[in-house]
Design a protein around this nucleic acid. Structure first.
Lengths: 333, 333
DNA sequence: CTGTTAGCGCGTTCAA
DNA sequence: TTGAACGCGCTAACAG
């Protein structure tokens, strides 16, 4: 079913049919109605490939994410999909498993797919060569969750958020607080959160040297459990994401500790599931779907302007804190 | 950067360049190397739209899912993405929020996007008119999780799995067992699991009339909590998915019950996260990523055969049971 | 093994 | 307001 057949059946020219779909105002109301009716009847749909080839725009937004297995990115993708769909764009997602090589490859593939722009979450914007390629190619892109002065980003102030978490714990009487961080090399967010932890501990004159680095993907319950032995064990764990917090709760329980009576645990991300857990996760909440939606909006604005989003267009959204049930006053010594 | 420019720069014809990328064997090794080298240098990438227009194949697989916010579908999408990517296909996902109207709309959009085929999870294959459209259009599709004799499906035997769950609980001494089901109208899986529950209870001469229907998306903790009051409360809950099981654990705790000492709770899906919970979720495990991968494989096979997957090609994968920690012998009366 | 050529379906000039 | 004609970048059939 091509535009030609429809034109022939309708008794108008190809260009009239084309105009009906692209510049409806420029066509007589009666002919327009007629064409639309015939299109409906014949099940005509404009061919996307031909359209993209002709206009050099695909109406597709590429998406690069570390993984879908962490709900935080699934929630974000959901927001991206909504905003894109609302604007008549399709999305083409790829995952990288936090691996630099896969980031490169994903960008490469999306490049070849003629995406109009990209939303991506990379390990580290500072060292991501794929971003250079995008920039020199003039392909619009927006980073989500990442934060870097040289790139357009939609994120929250992770560092501040973790400093505030530390302050909360201190206010609850905790002194021995340990950071459970995701792999720093694989995530600038983990780095920011670590900085927030160090800053927060320093602000309160506490020893911030206790911290553990664990993988994002595999569980590290045994390592965390080991940390929780002995009388000088921490009374609170600050985890750099919700998944790690969930694993830490398990580790604590396996170590014979009760959460939150014996040990307090905080997360970061605000995944929806955390609210249904027992104990409900105490965590920094990010507007994950909104981060996705805003990233797409920035991209759409850039399409309209005809110029890639500038680093200065970066958005810092508000984070929050869900009190939850995994934090309590420090146990008496 | 078009094939023409590359050909000119390299000093060969455009068809030679084309062959280098599509039929590498049919081109002299030296010229091939030369072309590839130049392509690399000039940053040439074949234009996907032109390719699709010419070949009438987009190398894109459409994906229709209820939601990404349930990890079971995120895990499945991950499998789909892997298998598709391995075969050089991109994916174009859409979510429906368990709504019939959105299913129709998603299929419509994917239609217009010239996808080569679809993997979909629909509410109910028996009543899904979008599937008819796909079939009459001759567009290859595979259903994931759904199960129906008239359609090619990749699924597990939900009914059997739930019957076995009931048997396990009975073996643990439980008699008062209640089903917490997702909305039956929104999911044939929920229906199958309900049938499994009824059958399982009947097999053991137990009263299977106790069951509650709850939403998939919003939490229904209060309704579940209400169910757990009184001395005739159930000693075990069979939940029709893991998310509902997690909410049920919370409901039980809020009702003052300990899981599993006072009440046993089972899930269904085997989301990865369930393994990190405390108590670890006792649940029917499905090979979610594999369900996605197999669906894609069926589709790829169909592409190769030049004919849509037949209902008889349906695959029934093995489910399992993770013992977990949310089940225990029934408390003494 | 390589080159020439004809469209794939469409949007967009330019004329009428 | 409408139509005719061109070409987007590519693959495939055919010719050499």
């Amino acid at each position: 079913m091509s535009i030609r057949e429809l034109a022939a059946q309708t008794g108008v020219s190809i260009s009239t049919v084309s105009r009906v779909f692209n510049l409806p105002d420029k066509v007589n109301a009666d002919t327009r109605a007629h064409v639309l009716q015939m299109a409906q009847a014949m099940g005509y749909l404009p061919n996307g490939s031909a359209r993209s080839l002709r206009t050099q725009r695909s109406r597709v937004i590429g998406v690069v994410l570390p993984t879908l297995l962490n709900p935080v990115f699934a929630e974000c993708l959901d927001g991206i999909a909504q905003a894109a769909s609302d604007a008549g764009y399709a999305i083409l997602p790829m995952t990288t498993n936090y691996q630099l090589a896969q980031e490169e490859q994903a960008v490469q593939q999306l490049f070849a797919s003629n995406v109009d722009g990209l939303v991506l979450v990379v390990s580290n914007p500072a060292t991501c060569s794929a971003l250079q390629r995008l920039r020199t190619a003039g392909l619009p892109y927006v980073l989500a969750y990442n934060r870097h002065v040289d790139h357009p980003c939609v994120s929250v102030d992770s560092e501040l958020a973790v400093r505030q978490v530390v302050a909360r714990l201190v206010a609850l009487g905790h002194r021995r607080i340990t950071l459970i961080s995701g792999k720093l090399a694989a995530s600038d967010r983990a780095q920011q959160r670590q900085r927030g932890f160090f800053a927060g501990m320093a602000e309160h004159g506490l020893d911030g040297s206790q911290w553990l680095e664990v993988p994002f993907v595999e569980t590290a319950v045994t390592e965390i459990t080991a940390l929780l032995q002995g009388s000088q064990r921490p009374t609170a764990l600050v985890c750099s994401n919700d998944l790690i917090a969930i694993r830490s709760i398990r580790a604590a329980t396996l170590a014979g500790l009760r959460v939150p009576q014996d040990i307090s645990i905080t997360g970061f991300d605000g995944i929806a599931l955390g609210e249904d857990l027992t104990p409900m996760l105490s965590t920094v909440t990010q507007p994950n779907a909104d981060i996705g939606r805003c990233s797409v909006k920035l991209l759409l604005q850039a399409f309209a302007d005809g110029v890639p989003p500038a680093p200065s267009a970066s958005l810092l959204l508000e984070q929050g804190f869900r009190t939850g049930e995994s934090c309590a006053p420090a146990p008496l010594p």
